[in-house]
Design a protein around this nucleic acid. Structure first.
Length: 296
DNA sequence: CTAAGCCCTAGCGAAAACTG
DNA sequence: CAGTTTTCGCTAGGGCTTAG
């Protein structure tokens, strides 16, 4: 073997940081050792994996090509190591999720995962779809959980479960007496919604096709809990995913309103880097998500 | 089979070289 | 000049070879 796993670690850390010093810190080694490990790997095969542009190390075409393979190889090596250690658990996992999924679904799944594999850590990063996808592409996270459509040539998008937005109001609101809301009810209402660009808002806008510009949006908030509080205070009516509302409906602090003529359905998806090695940890995580599907 | 010696590799710190 | 990478000399540890 003309290269070592350590050299690959240095290569990947450098690819991620675009900086040998930071990569060395990341790996808890001296900068010179990292530099020589990378230099060794390149000189061993007479290749260059980075373009040295001034002070920056930028991944070149060859570097981009081998990065996913190196990533996969190290993942497998880590798994093999775990097997040697007779810890047949899942392994550490970094999950990215959008706000709704992160707050209402992912935490429960994390708890089950960590209960199953007490030694393993799961890190959860909550961000918008765009950020999650970027982190998947950069191998920063192992798997992304997103709401709404997404497409990228390097990303596999796998449907997870169906979701639905629900319109709701406070128990004191005049609409609680209505069996169903009509178009004019929707137009007369004061809306409290998620901010534009969020997956929830995308679905809402799509559902309100035709009357969207005429809706009275009084408040746009980035947090689902804040929206629920505002609606509870009877500042207007809201529209959020059913997973965020089940508790409040059960308690009676919020009331579900029927809007039969509008399609509020959507889907949650897994997103994975096409070239990333599918570790046992990822496979188990997906399994647990599928088992949790009933709660969506 | 074991122990001693040799060699190789990875890592470190310091200094040089390079760039913006 | 400051920040970063590369190079150099040195050390420690591990693995391989060989003599007994």
């Amino acid at each position: 073997m003309r290269y070592s796993l350590r050299q690959l670690e240095v290569f990947l850390a450098t690819a991620q940081e675009e900086n040998i010093t930071k990569a060395a810190n990341h790996l808890s080694m001296s900068q010179s050792a990292a530099s020589s490990a990378l230099g060794e790997l390149e000189s061993q095969f007479g290749i260059q994996l980075f373009d040295r542009v001034g002070k920056k190390l930028q991944l070149n075409t060859l570097g981009h090509t081998v990065r996913p393979q190196a990533e996969a190889l190290l993942q497998q090596a880590a798994e093999l190591e775990r097997t040697f250690n007779e810890q047949s658990g899942g392994g550490d996992l970094t999950v990215g999720a959008t706000l709704t999924i992160g707050n209402y679904l992912a935490v429960g799944i994390m708890a089950r995962y960590m209960e199953e594999y007490p030694g393993d850590r799961v890190a959860l990063e909550v961000a918008n779809t765009e950020m999650i996808a970027q982190k998947v592409l950069n191998f920063d996270i192992d798997i992304g959980l997103i709401e709404g459509e997404f497409q990228h040539p390097d990303i596999d998008v796998i449907p997870w479960c169906d979701d639905e937005l629900m319109v709701f109001c406070s128990p004191e609101h005049a609409y609680t007496t209505k069996a169903k809301l009509t178009k004019s009810d929707l137009l007369k209402a004061q809306w409290i919604l998620r901010e534009p660009g969020s997956g929830t808002r995308q679905t809402f806008d799509r559902a309100m096709h035709g009357i969207l510009p005429n809706l009275d949006v009084t408040l746009e908030l980035q947090h689902t809990e804040a929206i629920k509080r505002a609606v509870e205070a009877n500042l207007g009516i809201g529209c959020l995913s059913k997973v965020a509302l089940q508790d409040a409906f059960a308690r009676g602090s919020l009331i579900n309103l029927s809007v039969p003529q509008r399609d509020f359905s959507r889907q949650f998806y897994f997103i994975l880097h096409k070239q990333k090695y599918q570790s046992m940890a990822i496979a188990r995580w997906i399994e647990l998500c599928r088992e949790e599907e009933g709660k969506c």
